[in-house]
Structure formats: C-alpha cells, structure tokens
Design a protein around this nucleic acid. Structure first.
Lengths: 187, 187
DNA sequence: TGGATAATATATCATAAAGATATATATGTC
DNA sequence: GACATATATATCTTTATGATATATTATCCA
C-alpha cells in the first residue's frame, strides 16, 4: 500500500465530498476555483486517485463508454474517506511555504540596474492589480447569490483572503518603486 | 552535463556573488535572511553546487582540513557565473505559486464545525502577528544602519514586503473570524 | 462539407523541491 | 566526562511540477 502523505489526497477528498468527479474535472475545479491559493497537476491527481481507491477512501466506477462515447472514470468518496477528511480538517494547517522570485531579484538588487528592477515591479503591480479586480468580481457575485438566499460564505472568505494578500503585494510594489527611485536620485 | 534549471542555481549564484561560501553556510544564509520568502534544502544545494562547478559558473576549493580541522569545501562565483546571474536578474520573475492550506480547510468549511475553524484562525493570527513583529524589528535595524551610513535598501524592501503580506493575512483572518461568527449566530 | 482548434479524458516521464537521515568533527556547558 | 549544539558534506525517499503522448468529441468558421 503506497503512502502518498501530501496534501493532494485531502484536496481530492474535499472535492469528492461535494460530488463524484473524474480526474480531469478535479483538475479543472482546482484551476477555476482554487488557483489563487492552490494548484495540482495531472501527475499528482491520477496516482493519488488510485492510491485513495486502494486505501478504501474512494471508489471508482468502471470505465464508462456509454455516456458520451468518451472513456471516463468517475470517483466517489467513501465513508472512510469522509472520516479521513474530517480528521485532516480538524488538524492545524501547516505553515505556508512561499517562494517570491521577485524578492530574490530585489534582494540581489545591487547587481542590477534600477531600471530593470522598476520594470519588474511595474509588471508585478499590473499582475496583482488584475488579480484583485478578478477577485472583486467573484466577491460581488457571491454577494448577489447571498441576497438570493444561496450561502457562499466560505468561497467568499477565500476570495477575500486573495484580495487582501494581492492588494498588499501591489501596495508594497508601489512603495518599493518609490524607495528605489529616491535612492537612485540621491546617488 | 546536467541541466538543473530551477531557481536554486540562481539563489546560490546570488549568494556567492556577495562572498565565497560553503554549502552549509549557503543553507544557513537562506534560513536566516530569506526564510520569509524562500527556502532551500541540502538535497537541492549540494547537487546544484556540483552542477555549477561542472558548468563553469562556480569554482570549488579542495577540501580544506587546515582552517579548524573540519573538512570544508568553499565555493566561489566565476565571471561566467556573474554573467549568468545578471542575465537571470534581467528576466521577468515567474508568477508565485502559493499553497495556503488554511484556505483549503476554510473552503471545505461546510464539513467542519465553526469552533474548529475559529481555532485555526486564532493560530493563524498569532503566527502572522509574530512574523510581522519580527520583520518590524529587522526594518528598524536597517533604519539604524542607514543612519550610520550603511545602505541596506534591498534588505529593507524584502522585509517590508513580508510586513505588508503577513499583515494582510492577519487582517483577513480577523475579518474571517467575524464573518464566520456572524454566520453561526444567524443559523 | 471540410479543416482547424478547443475541450474532455487518462496516463506517464523527467525534472525539481522538500524532508529525513547518515556520518563525522568541533565547541560549549553543566 | 557527558550531553547538546553547531559545522559540514552527502544521499535517499517522497512529493510536486511541467511536459508530453494519446484519443475522442465538440465547436467554430470559411
């Protein structure tokens, strides 16, 4: 029995707890709903699905050729899978590992011309601004749905986290531009 | 010739561009100076150092037994290494990949009791608050050094980014607690 | 109608990264 | 002297990412 103790296992269980899905739709769900704070690859998803089945945490359908002619394997969570998910949900989350390449380049900035760094920062500001607008759009949709009686509190909360974090990065980059520019003028 | 196209290569070149070092001191530098936005393991550092030497981007000393009796290999950057570093610094940084386990748990929150989520959020707030204080301390030190004529602009900028981001996460968690609590009361 | 492209779907491989462990010496301290 | 901590190199396993292979179906559009 293979171990596979990463988080992928729990993401998949979490998604299957909502509804039965194929590996492909799991990948797409993560891309569309979670891309701001999570990502998984096919290379992780398919082996993990097999491991979940062999551990009894999920069950797979036979290959269905009937539905639309395409072969697909639909996975569903088991009671044991739900229990495993609950257990993980109750445990304290790990500390985030973050790799900000732009900070490395800033940090080695003595080797770099100011103009290059300012260019990187402009791209960074634009990118983060775009993400914030996107998240604002989602938050608005969740509010509309809420007014219609649908509860999307937890989706709203994750979007809100993204908004705070990406706004902070944009604000930092604006400050950083100013500080680097002032420093350049002094020299 | 092995490729090794990850970022580890450039982090090491960046550190070696400041001063010659051993693999161990590279690990420690990253831990102490960059841990808020970067991390590397021995399993990445030692093989990458060998690859850098074989590519002519760094040179290694023979094993020195003399200095303090302990065997150590000191690495230094070459001119080709500096050129490679410059090239990388001028290229646009990749988009950050972020994995926030706490957001996954929030997102699967329908499966979880409010009390558990609020507990996770409390830990999260405390952790981020601590990090912000730590970064504030660094920023103050950089200001003192600046007053004494030492320029630490780029170290200050990276600490400032951390301060902004970790503050944003703390603020979000405070909001999240409020929203979850209100939702619980309504039901 | 044909042809190109995009979407659905499963799967594997190579590279990269993280984490754990092994080994050995040196230093500090109780 | 015993024990913990720090210095130092190295490897191994597990986990994650990115690219690629393969095949079918759906859609767009000229």
């Amino acid at each position: 029995m293979k171990e596979n103790t990463g988080k992928t296992k729990y993401v998949i269980l979490g998604l299957l707890s909502h509804c039965p899905q194929t590996g492909y739709s799991i990948k797409k769900s993560i891309e569309f709903e979670y891309s701001h704070f999570w990502q998984e690859s096919f290379g992780q998803i398919y082996p993990t699905l097999k491991a979940l089945v062999s551990e009894g945490l999920a069950v797979s359908s036979d290959i269905l050729e009937s539905s639309d002619g395409r072969g697909q394997i639909v996975y569903n969570i088991t009671e044991a899978g739900r229990a495993e998910l609950e257990k993980w949900l109750s445990e304290a989350p790990d500390v985030e590992k973050i790799r900000y390449e732009i900070l490395l380049k800033i940090s080695f900035g003595t080797n770099t011309q100011s103009q290059v760094l300012l260019g990187h920062l402009d791209d960074f500001i634009e990118r983060n601004e775009k993400t914030v607008s996107e998240l604002d759009g989602y938050i608005e949709i969740f509010h509309v749905l809420k007014a219609q009686g649908e509860d999307h509190t937890f989706n709203e909360l994750t979007a809100l986290c993204g908004k705070y974090v990406y706004s902070a990065m944009r604000d930092w980059a604006l400050d950083a531009k100013r500080i680097i520019t002032e420093r350049g003028e002094k020299q």
